[in-house]
């Protein structure tokens, strides 16, 4: 009887833990919705930041975030996939490969703000790109790269060895087997990983503060020249102000950011379902 009671109490605690966490998520969404929905109109989406919260808009921040996501995807896609192929398909048990793998997993654990410091030294100062959207996007690309590499490796690992063996049996070399048989089979997983890491890049704030994401930008950003802002930076700037009106437009901007990330997640799910439909092993 006592043993059963202990079991029931424990089960209740498990349920409570999960409910509490999900309740926090729900409260967060409700709070942001109730504060932010009021300002979310076409004027807000197409307007530019203003000292007066009622007139402020986020067009430059939306464009900045979209450009940023695009550049990050274009940079990380070839490098990340190539690195993933090398680590998963070539010289798998060599010392070099183990070193590279350990390094990638350690890089994935480096705080994002450290990437900001590195990006400041490398892209802004040494390569003389200045505090531009391009420098910010390249910094975030380095941050996202380990995630893309790990996603690629997992997708490649899921392809059965029989696919490679069949290609080799037909006389294909290693690269021909990868190009012709392995990559097409792994494509859904790889693309999903890349879209999800784009979402992660769009939500990042801290590294861009070091790359001088200026917060008062009233024009569409130019990637290689002049100041820029992105949604999380704009949210940060408004949320650090004491006035309630600024908190409200910060909430509106959060809704736009969450919608953008939700869209990317939906796209990732769609890609995975759609592309893996014809795969049968």
């Amino acid at each position: 009887m006592r043993r059963r009671l202990a079991g029931t109490v424990f089960y209740a605690a498990c349920i409570a833990a999960i409910s509490l966490t999900l309740l926090a998520l729900l409260l967060l969404l409700l709070d942001v919705l109730s504060r932010g929905l009021g300002h979310l109109d076409p004027d807000f989406l197409s307007g530019v930041p203003s000292r007066r919260p009622a007139r402020a808009g986020i067009m430059p921040a939306i464009l900045g975030s979209l450009y940023l996501g695009l550049i990050v995807a274009v940079v990380t896609f070839p490098i990340g996939v190539a690195a993933g192929i090398f680590l998963e398909e070539y010289t798998k048990d060599s010392f070099l490969n183990r070193l590279l793998r350990t390094n990638i997993s350690n890089l994935a654990g480096v705080p994002s703000i450290i990437y900001g410091i590195f990006g400041l030294a490398l892209f802004v100062r040494a390569l003389n790109l200045g505090e531009t959207l391009l420098a910010g996007a390249l910094t975030l690309s380095l941050l996202i790269l380990p995630v893309v590499i790990i996603a690629t490796m997992e997708a490649l690992r899921a392809v059965p060895a029989s696919q490679r063996e069949a290609a080799h049996a037909l006389g294909a070399t290693r690269w021909q087997a990868i190009k012709g048989a392995v990559l097409p089979a792994a494509a859904p997983g790889i693309l999903t990983g890349i879209v999800l890491s784009m979402a992660r890049a769009i939500g990042e704030t801290a590294p861009l503060i070091l790359i001088g994401a200026v917060t008062f930008v009233t024009y569409a950003p130019n990637p290689v020249e002049g100041g820029y802002t992105v949604l999380p930076i704009q949210i940060f700037q408004w949320a650090s102000r004491p006035q309630a009106e600024f908190q409200e437009i910060a909430a509106s901007a959060i809704l736009v950011l969450l919608a953008l990330m939700f869209a990317l997640n939906a796209l990732a799910l769609f890609l995975r379902v759609r592309l893996s439909r014809h795969l049968q092993w």
Binding site: A83, L107, A121
Partner: peptide, 27 residues
């Protein structure tokens, strides 16, 4: 072709090591 491809793949994988080295050097 194989060699070129493998060289490109290796260089991409090395970007991670360069990043680590760069971070340590800068700091």
């Amino acid at each position: 072709v194989e060699q070129l491809v493998e060289a490109f793949l290796f260089l991409s994988a090395a970007v991670g090591v360069l990043t680590t080295a760069g971070i340590v050097l800068v700091l």
